[in-house]
Amino acid sequence: MSQNITQNKTICYHCGEDCQSEPLWHNDHAFCCFGCQTVFELLSENDLCEYYSFENNPGNQLSHFIKDKYLFLDNEEVVDHLLDFKSDQLAKITFSIPSIHCSSCIWLLENISRFDHGIIVSKINFSKKKLTIDYNPSKTTLRSIADLLYQLSYEPEISLDAKNSNSTQKNTTRDLKIGIAGFCFGNIMLLAFPDYLGIEMDSEFIQYFTYISLGLSIPVLFYCSSEFFISALGGLRKRLLNI
C-alpha cells in the first residue's frame, strides 16, 4: 500500500488534500475524490505518471465536473475570435490557466500532445500562467482541447473581453520595452562615438560617459530582456536548454 497516510491523515496522492474518512483507493494510491482519481487514470493510461516525480502531490483538486462547460466553443465565430492564428492545417490559441503552480504542471502541459495527437506543440509562460497551443484543426477542435485541460484539473479561463484587453496590454508592454531599449541603445552609441572613430579625448568627463553608459544598460538587461531570462529559467527548471 502506498505511503499516503501522514499523522493519522490519508493524503490524496494527486493533490495532497486530506481524504477525510472515506478515501478512494486505486492502484494502491489514495484519492480524495473521483476527479483526482480520473486524472491519475488519464496520466497512467498515457504513460505520463512521471508527472508525480517532479513534486510531491503536484495536482489540483477537481471536486466536480460540469458537463458541456465549453459547449460554446462549438461556435465557429467564437473560436475564430479566440484564436491567435488560423489556417487549414494550423491554429494557435493562448489560454490563461491560473492553476499552473509548479514544475510538474509545466512538464505535463508541455506533453499534452500525448493525450491528443491533433496538438502539434504546447508551450508554457510560467510567470504569466499562460499556455500556448498549436494544433491541427482538421484533427482536433478547440473544444476538445479545453475539455481535456479541464479534465486534467487545469481549467482554462476563457473570456472574449479579456482577450481584447490582454492583447492591448501585451502590445503596450512590448512597445514600452522596445522604446526603452532603443533610447538606451541610441545614447550609449552616442557616448561611445569617439571610441568607434579612434579619437583620443583628454577630458575629465570621459569616465562619466562610461558610468552613464553602464547605467543605461541596466534597464535593458533587467527589464527589456526579462522575457528571455524567464524563458531560460523555465527551461533550466525542467533540465532543458532552449534558445
Rank of each mutant, 00 (worst) to 15 (best):
M1K: 08
S2R: 15
Q3P: 12
Q3H: 12
Q3L: 15
I5K: 00
I5N: 04
T6G: 05
T6S: 14
T6Q: 00
Q7H: 12
N8E: 03
K9C: 00
K9A: 10
T10W: 03
I11L: 11
I11W: 10
Y13D: 09
H14K: 00
G16W: 07
G16A: 12
E17K: 13
D18F: 06
S21F: 05
L24E: 04
H26L: 11
N27W: 01
D28C: 07
A30V: 05
C32A: 07
F34K: 15
Q37G: 03
F40I: 03
L42S: 06
L42D: 04
L43W: 11
L43P: 05
S44N: 08
S44V: 06
E45H: 01
E45R: 10
N46W: 10
D47A: 02
D47C: 12
E50M: 06
Y52V: 11
S53K: 15
S53F: 14
F54E: 05
E55F: 11
E55V: 04
E55I: 04
N56Y: 13
G59I: 03
N60T: 01
Q61A: 15
L62R: 06
L62N: 06
H64Y: 12
H64W: 09
F65A: 12
F65H: 06
F65W: 08
K67V: 15
K67N: 15
K69S: 11
Y70W: 10
L71W: 04
F72R: 01
L73Y: 02
D74Y: 07
D74C: 06
N75G: 03
H81A: 09
F85G: 03
F85Y: 03
S87P: 05
S87K: 00
S87F: 03
Q89A: 12
A91V: 07
A91C: 07
A91F: 08
K92G: 10
I93T: 06
I93M: 04
T94S: 03
F95R: 07
I97A: 04
P98N: 12
